[in-house]
Design a binder for these strands. Structure first.
Lengths: 246, 246
DNA sequence: GCTTGTATGTTCGATACCGCACATAGTGAA
DNA sequence: TTCACTATGTGCGGTATCGAACATACAAGC
């Protein structure tokens, strides 16, 4: 069972935590805590954005789907941001699907309410847009990584991005699901995982993966993880991740 | 020589053309026409965004670069948008490079001025954000296309996206440059181009490509072109492209 | 004309990944 | 315990793309 905060607090979401007190107070009465299990579809491709979600725990993947059922993850979001940017970007809907990759606790907010707040301009708007740019960076790097890097390198990137958004070094995810995210064959993930395990970097069994050597994984990885990490830190420096531990 | 408008008009940029008259009038005195040749680097990765550009003619590519010199195009922009979104997204800089892919005429605007206008909220802000979402869609689709589709399909997508932004069916671009955009070997582009030419879809010689059969090219293409086109049209319907011909 | 440079064409072996088929091993329910 | 199911492992031929080396061909300037 993934450990959960005994006392839930919207400020466990770093974006909410970074809001000026006045903005935060206005949002607070409208925030409602919801849980979403692994595999839950937060948004379907093309569907209207009725609510946005500020995760406090867990991971949401943004996936591009194709006609033949193939897919690829284009970005992930955890407690550093929100799910549902198409709302304030003016698109009403997105062409990608948002799926829970690791059990999520999130504060949901009605679309219409967030829009009113966004239209005020000011800090809330700035924070949302900066987060969106971080997401754009992640998508761009994913695109180039898909083109140029090996499966095993991409797996390392994926593992690192995931555990960055989790409280421990463990994640619950089958190789089959990972292969859907990366848009590769399941057998390919099996082989790459086997190598990483043989090298002592990870350990896994039936959907339970433990990262044993984070630094080693970073070394094994392509530059893409570092690029995304650095740019996200630059854009989302509002609150150091560690501050949340207080 | 690419044909150029005898009378330059900022409204040849569809985004500027879609502005409410009052907003447009405020911008007008600050717009300055500039030309940029093929290969010109509009923004370097990581550099500060001092000016933004509203193209009236030509194409700008957004490229992700890697340490080893490899690259991949993640999106293109023509007269339907602007170059320099990182300005109003709050990032100051981007991690990608913007390069002129086909000779550009654009109206440039000082960053500080556009920011003031953006902060007013209203229609200008909405237009810029919607354009940004269209760009996000393009990036997401590029990522999944890189993963799943063949070189020749990607070449078709690239050709279609390019001629959509040009006044004729011709484009000036060597196979070497195309290979940089797609992030593949030059020889691969040679082979794919040869096939498309044999099929009567295109004709080319030394950096001059003519699309002979647009519909055929769309059929040969993966779904990615149609997805991007459809979503862009949905988001950027402010002004039908054809209206510009008036 | 000739020369030089750039653009395109061709070949060859190497390889990463694919699709498929099937084997093995945990895990939970009957 | 047994069964059924899910997760992982393995082997095989097929193929798209790679990297490199080299051949041809067009174009512009002298």
């Amino acid at each position: 069972m993934p450990h959960s905060n005994p006392i839930e607090d919207p400020k466990s979401n770093r974006l909410l935590a970074a809001l000026p007190p006045a903005d935060y107070e206005r949002l607070l009465p409208h925030l409602e805590l919801v849980g979403m299990p692994l595999g839950h579809v937060v948004y379907e491709s093309g569907a209207r954005t009725e609510r946005v979600y500020f995760p406090t725990e867990g991971i949401v993947s943004l996936l591009s789907l194709m006609e033949n059922g193939n897919s690829a993850e284009i970005a992930v979001t955890g407690n550093e941001g929100l799910v549902g940017i198409s709302l304030f970007m003016g698109g009403v809907s997105t062409s990608s699907r948002a799926v829970v990759q690791s059990t999520v606790q999130a504060y949901q907010l009605q679309a219409s309410f967030l829009m009113k707040e966004f239209e005020r301009g000011g800090e809330l708007q700035h924070l949302l847009l900066r987060f969106t740019q971080a997401l754009i960076t992640q998508m761009a790097q994913t695109a180039v990584c898909n083109r140029h890097h090996s499966l095993i390198q991409q797996l390392c990137r994926w593992l690192l991005l995931s555990i960055d958004r989790l409280p421990t070094n463990e994640l619950h995810m089958t190789q089959e699901l990972i292969s859907n995210m990366l848009g590769v064959r399941r057998e390919g993930v099996t082989e790459a995982s086997g190598i990483l395990q043989a090298e002592g970097l990870i350990q896994y069994q039936r959907g339970h993966i433990v990262v044993l050597n984070r630094a080693g994984l970073e070394q094994r990885c392509c530059e893409c993880y570092a690029v995304v990490k650095k740019e996200s830190d630059r854009l989302l420096h509002w609150i150091a991740k560690d501050n949340l531990a207080q």
